[in-house]
Amino acid sequence: METTTTSARRKVAELGHVGIRCFDVERQLAFYTDVLGLVVTDHDAALGNYFLSARPDEEHHELLLARGRDVATDGRLIQQISFRCESFDDVVGLYRQLKEDGTRFDMIVSHGNAVGVYFFDPEGNRAEVYWQTGLVARQPFIENIDIETPADELMGAILASVERFGASGFTEESYVRWTREQASAQSGAATTTEAGR
């Protein structure tokens, strides 16, 4: 094998999967399979490991659920887990399934380049289902939308917003406030932890 010091730097091809530890892996498994439609590709019930995929013929697993979570439900471990959908209708359908399931929503937004429905799984992990619009918009681009709006009307509004703000990005004031509150709460928790040492 020949190596050279001038070889190009390597990079990963794509995100393969995310693994999360669970308090109640069976409840999490039911949510991700029954509500979001992921398929179990492998599992070890004794170990409490379940491998799930939305496209099992292409990717053995995209999500691993495992027993052994030891961090409180208000602990911030995961910013979000995002699942891409093939169509806007899929996002709307999943929104309705989540609503029927009694799922708690975080926000439903246009990112200009995508429409995203953000929600919390049964253990409080933040997740998203989204569809790519094909438009180009500088991020962050977060504009609250009503997902129940007829598709052609909603897409017209998103296109108009991207034409207006796509080059600069756009962020709802409510999201700016929320982000600042999250950062403030985190720094306060860190200060309390440091003082307790």
Rank of each mutant, 00 (worst) to 15 (best):
G93A: 12
G75H: 15
G188H: 11
V115F: 00
Y32F: 15
T179H: 12
V92H: 05
I147E: 05
V176F: 08
T4G: 11
G102V: 07
E153I: 10
I20T: 03
G102E: 06
S7W: 11
D42H: 15
I81S: 01
P56Y: 04
D57M: 07
F120V: 00
Y175P: 01
V115C: 00
E86H: 06
G188P: 00
R180I: 15
A66Y: 02
A160Q: 13
V71H: 08
D121V: 03
A127E: 09
S184N: 11
K11G: 10
E128N: 04
S110M: 00
G19N: 01
F23S: 11
F120T: 03
A185M: 12
F120M: 08
G124N: 11
E2R: 12
T4S: 14
F170N: 00
E173V: 09
F105Q: 06
Y130E: 08
Q139K: 11
T193I: 14
L36G: 01
H17R: 01
D34H: 03
L65F: 10
S110K: 01
G68P: 02
A72M: 05
G124F: 06
E62M: 13
A167F: 01
Q182P: 04
E62R: 13
L94N: 05
E153W: 00
Q79L: 05
P56M: 06
A160N: 11
R10V: 10
R104A: 12
E148Q: 12
P122W: 09
F119N: 01
T4D: 05
T192R: 15
P56S: 10
L135W: 05
E173Y: 12
V71M: 09
S110Q: 03
L65G: 11
A160K: 14
V91K: 01
V129Y: 02
S168I: 07
F23P: 07
Y95I: 08
V25Y: 04
V162L: 06
Q132F: 08
H60Q: 14
S168G: 09
M107E: 12
A127D: 03
T179M: 10
A30T: 12
V117F: 07
A114R: 04
S161W: 06
Y118L: 03
V115E: 13
T41H: 09
Y118E: 04
V92G: 00
R27C: 04
L15Y: 12
R21E: 07
R104C: 09
T192Y: 09
A151C: 11
E153T: 13
S168R: 14
